[in-house]
């Protein structure tokens, strides 16, 4: 049985892909405020382009982030609800892992970073190593947990590693080795998820916020 996968990532721009064996389609939108508007039309259009109907989809995959909260949630809730409505499984994947896999087009060996825009002068980041012994679709091994940091607070030897994501575009003086990979591709997300699912890895959907909501409890306000 071949899988028909709907993949959605809204941690960077909006990327939606549908893969049905040899037939696949991918679309994206980079309107930073347009996540809510664009995801559903992209879902409808990619299904049509791949020549399948909503009822044909067997699996949904979403990017868990990290990413700006409001946009991130739009993709995750879209995937969760679609899967529930069709009665099919939904899987989640760290979006930084997807960018790391995309970066392998430009890094052949050694260690590298993924750093994406976390706003407020911070980046979401993780450190990776290329492992040539692993399957081609899943060759970037994550060495650190996804985290949020002010880029200047990263040690220089870390910042100096080749870096994928928009971190180097936003802070070129702090990330001197940019890789030409900016936004998450739902197509690569699909390949990575299928590889891990076939390897028996459990892929829970869980938004990676990495920050508490901005608010003080009444108790915290009382104790300055």
């Amino acid at each position: 049985m071949s899988r028909v996968v709907l993949a959605i990532d809204t941690s960077t721009s909006v990327s939606v892909a549908v893969s049905a064996g040899a037939d696949w389609a991918m679309g994206w939108s980079d309107d930073p405020r347009g996540h809510t508007e664009s995801v559903a039309p992209l879902m409808r259009d990619q299904l049509a382009s791949a020549g399948v109907s909503a009822a044909d989809v067997t699996d949904v995959v979403v990017g868990n982030g990290p990413g700006p909260f409001t946009g991130l949630r739009v993709g995750i809730v879209s995937g969760l609800v679609f899967a529930h409505a069709r009665g099919i499984p939904v899987h989640g994947m760290c979006s930084l892992d997807v960018l790391a896999q995309q970066a392998l087009e430009h890094v052949r060996e050694g260690e590298f970073l993924v750093a994406t825009d976390a706003r407020r002068k911070e980046v979401y980041w993780a450190r990776y190593r290329v492992d040539p012994d692993r399957p081609e679709q899943d060759r970037a091994v994550r060495l650190t947990d996804p985290a949020v940091v002010r880029p200047a607070d990263l040690p220089e030897e870390v910042r100096s590693l080749p870096t994928a994501g928009r971190g180097p575009v936003l802070y070129p003086e702090l990330f001197p080795e940019p890789l030409a990979v900016l936004d998450v591709s739902a197509g690569v997300l699909t390949g990575l998820a299928l590889q891990r699912l076939d390897a028996g890895v459990d892929l829970p959907v869980e938004p990676l916020y990495l920050r508490r909501p901005d608010a003080l409890t009444t108790a915290e306000r009382a104790t300055p």
Partner: peptide
């Protein structure tokens, strides 16, 4: 931000169904 969760969910339901 709260509205967007519901609007996205509703649209996805509409596409799925």
């Amino acid at each position: 931000g709260a509205l967007m969760v519901g609007v996205a969910a509703a649209k996805s339901l509409a596409v799925a169904l």
